[in-house]
Every structure is written in structure tokens, then in C-alpha cells.
């Protein structure tokens, strides 16, 4: 039994009358790659954003490496973090990669990557730069270290964003549709990096539409439908023999 890297319990979230997450629970053990699939509006991205509290759930519990993020019920009915300091530490251990990259536009590639290690982890700048160099090499962006995000293609920007998240040495990587905003010919360069991370046994949670990638690298697949986990299991198994009609329909589209 490997250690539980991330534990998500009973996450519920409504936007107004619309309940988008109706009690989601799952665990990621160290080295797991969990892909979350489902049609648009199924709550995939919301679920991911509730894990690091970019979005506040209405109820539920998140634990990183066994440590529960402390919360209380706020006046507005949402789950509110009780310990800001702990929340920051937890967020630092959850490396997030966004659909739209969200690289800081006023900082160069290198500055983007060392920002977190220097400002949040308080690493000396020298060490942060040395670590960043290894990461830039890994994602193949070393040539562009002094470029600004606007000077890079989408694929390059996303690779920098992955390096920026990795620089925090996170316990879990969270990918929010990392290839959805890319031109088709740029998808592959990002997929290759993600594939490599999977072979290194990094713990990853990935919301994606890339069914082939999900099937190839995931250890576990979660199919979300109408705010619930409709079906889950090893990717080959549930993609070849979907039990529910919903999943059968969904897979049929690809």
C-alpha cells in the first residue's frame, strides 16, 4: 500500500440553484495518474479548482499527504479555509497547470519558474536558478529562458507553466485541460512532457479531453456526469467495457 498523496472527500458545490458537484470522493496514491473525463459542464474543472481552493466548495474535505486542509463553514455557506498559513503551504504542494497557461506576463521564462521557489519556498535565488535550469532542460525551453510569455507559442508557454509547477516540488500535480487551448499542431509537445512525468511516477490529477492520452498514461480513470462519478476504474477496462450508457455515449464521440 503506497501513501495517500491526495484525498478528496464528499466535495459538494453549487452555483446558485445548480449543483455542479454532488459529493465527489477519490484518493490518489503516490505515483497514481488519475484522469478525470466528462462532457463540458460536468464539473471537472470545478472539482479540480475546489481541491486547491481556487473555488470554494460548499462542503467536503481535502487532504494532502494525510494532512487535512482546515476549514469552517463561512456565513455565505461556503467552505472557508481556517488557517491561511496552512492553506498556502498546501497550495504550494499542489502544482497547478491551467488551461490558459497563466504565466505572469511581466516576467521572463526563468523569472516565472523561480518566482514560487524564491518567494514561497524561500529558496536562495542561486539554488532556484540552478533548479530551474534542470527543469527548463526537461521541458525543452532552455533556449527561451529570457523570453517573455508573449514571445512564446502556446505549446512553449504551457511547457513553461509545467516547469513552474514542478519547481515547487509538489506532492501532486493538477492539470486543468492542459492542451485544450492549444493549436492542434502544438498539442503533441505538451503531451510528450506530461507523458514523461507519468513515466517518472509523478502523482497527477488531470482533467482532459485527450482520450488517447488519458487511456495511455492513467492508472485510474474517473468519468464525471451531472456532478457525480458515473464510472471509474482502470482506463482500458472502463473504456473498452463501459457499464453505463452515458460513458458509452461519451466515448462514442471520440
Amino acid at each position: 500500500m503506497t501513501a495517500t498523496a491526495l484525498s478528496v472527500r464528499n466535495i459538494r458545490k453549487s452555483f446558485g440553484e445548480d449543483e455542479v458537484l454532488k459529493g465527489i470522493s477519490f484518493d490518489a496514491h503516490s505515483g497514481d495518474v488519475i484522469s478525470i473525463i466528462g462532457s463540458s459542464g460536468s464539473g471537472k474543472s470545478t472539482l479540480l479548482r475546489c481541491i486547491n481552493f481556487l473555488e470554494r466548495a460548499d462542503s467536503g474535505e481535502v487532504a494532502v499527504a494525510g494532512e487535512i486542509i482546515k476549514t469552517h463553514k463561512a456565513k455565505d455557506g461556503q467552505l472557508s479555509p481556517s488557517d491561511k498559513h496552512q492553506l498556502k503551504q498546501m497550495r504550494a504542494r499542489l502544482g497547478m497547470v491551467f488551461q490558459n497557461f497563466n504565466l505572469w506576463a511581466h516576467r521572463t521564462v526563468l523569472e516565472n519558474i523561480i518566482e514560487g521557489p524564491v518567494q514561497v519556498l524561500k529558496h536562495p535565488k542561486k539554488k532556484a536558478v540552478a533548479d530551474a535550469e534542470i527543469l527548463m532542460d526537461k521541458v525543452g525551453i532552455s533556449q527561451k529562458r529570457n523570453h517573455y510569455p508573449s514571445q512564446l507559442s502556446g505549446g512553449q508557454q504551457q511547457r513553461v507553466a509545467i516547469a513552474r509547477a514542478l519547481a515547487m516540488q509538489p506532492t501532486v500535480m493538477l492539470f486543468d485541460e492542459p492542451t485544450s487551448a492549444l493549436d492542434p499542431e502544438l498539442v503533441n509537445e505538451v503531451v510528450q512532457v506530461i507523458r514523461q512525468l507519468a513515466t517518472e511516477k509523478r502523482t497527477m490529477i488531470m482533467v482532459t479531453h485527450e482520450m488517447a492520452l488519458a487511456r495511455e498514461i492513467s492508472t485510474h480513470l474517473i468519468f464525471l456526469h451531472n456532478g457525480r462519478i458515473e464510472e471509474q476504474g482502470p482506463p482500458q477496462l472502463i473504456m473498452e467495457n463501459p457499464k453505463s450508457d452515458r460513458l458509452r455515449q461519451f466515448i462514442g464521440k471520440f
Binding site: Q89, M90, R91, M96, F98, N102, V120, M168
Partner: peptide, 8 residues
Amino acid sequence: ESATAIGM
């Protein structure tokens, strides 16, 4: 958001 997510 990306700054929040990194723990700033």
C-alpha cells in the same frame, strides 16, 4: 489565480 495556486 496562478499566484494564488502557487501559495503566495
